[in-house]
């Protein structure tokens, strides 16, 4: 293949990852935006989504598309409920103190990850693609499913925007984000909102996992890398900003794809983090401060 088509191929691969990354980062950003806490276990909810998808697809016989659809419906719900429980049982009792909450979410990270190791085992396991169509793009063939991933992510991002901008629930979230005490004074049940948001944040990451797992395989350690990338995205894009998150995810996802294809995945991550250093130097106090959706 010539350089041009090869670059196109790498960009398309990057775009697929960018799509999933923007979902993961969006979940992280939503939780921080509304609750002002950083969920270090976020990557593990993503991983949980992936291995649950594997379970479902193994459980449902017959057409892989059926298993995929069921997973797409059930898995985010289950992951969301697990996340809500961890909020209810743990984070709520810490009164969402930012630093203590981070330590606790690290605890949750290990518990989910090691529980996955116990039940799912140490091996990476593939999930069959729901449909197997290859599009001929003249220079190379590209899986139609990957386009489907990009398309689905766009739809979901649009839905989140719609909910935030146009619904009453969105209004409640925006009010809570601006000033939780005043929101409470206006009769918004803050603790319920927090649990819901924590659940929804994890569920969005789980959707990303359901989408990516037919391409990537499920593994109990797969949560670490997307967490790092999501942090990078969120810092560069501005936490809580939907537009910034998507733009930064595109930037990081695509460049990650290209550098990974041409050089090495590790180098891609090293360079992306160096970008964060640059952001730090330019905008020292800007991290985690812009909060708009």
């Amino acid at each position: 293949m010539d350089l041009g088509p090869y670059l196109l191929f790498a960009s398309l691969e990057g775009l697929v990852h960018a799509a999933v990354l923007s979902l993961i980062a969006l979940g992280l950003s939503l939780v921080f935006g509304v609750m002002r806490i950083v969920n270090v276990a976020h990557g593990e909810f993503f991983m949980l989504g992936a291995i649950l998808t594997w379970w479902v697809s193994n459980f449902v016989m017959g057409n892989p598309a059926l298993g995929f659809l069921i997973a797409l419906l059930i898995v985010p719900l289950v992951v969301g409920i697990i996340a809500m429980f961890s909020d209810l049982l743990i984070l709520r009792h810490l009164k969402y103190d930012p630093e203590v909450t981070i330590i606790a979410t690290i605890g949750i990270l290990y518990i989910i990850q090691q529980f996955a190791l116990m039940t799912f085992g140490p091996d990476a396991r593939p999930v069959e693609q729901p449909f197997n169509i290859r599009l001929d793009l003249y220079w190379f063939g590209f899986s139609a499913y990957k386009f489907f991933v990009i398309f689905s992510a766009i739809i979901l991002l649009f839905c989140v925007w719609l909910v935030m901008a146009k619904t009453k629930f969105g209004l409640i979230l925006r009010a809570t984000q601006l000033d939780s005490e005043i929101a409470q004074a206006f009769g918004i049940p803050i603790s319920t909102v927090y649990s819901l948001v924590f659940g929804v944040g994890a569920a969005i990451a789980a959707v990303g996992a359901v989408l990516i797992v037919p391409i990537q395989q499920a593994h109990y350690l797969m949560g670490g890398e997307p967490l790092l990338l999501a942090f990078i995205v969120v810092i560069i894009g501005g936490l809580g900003s939907l537009k910034g998150t998507v733009v930064a995810a595109m930037l990081i996802g695509i460049s990650d794809g290209i550098i990974s294809v041409f050089f090495s995945p590790n180098l891609a991550k090293i360079l992306a983090t160096l970008l964060v250093v640059v952001v730090l130097l330019i905008r020292p106090n800007g991290l985690f401060r812009t909060i708009r959706i």
Partner: peptide
Amino acid sequence: ITDAYMIIVGVSLLIVTLFAR
């Protein structure tokens, strides 16, 4: 007992943050 021994670290972190600051 288990390969997933790091679960101990997770549980300890939660116990310390919840009950023994």
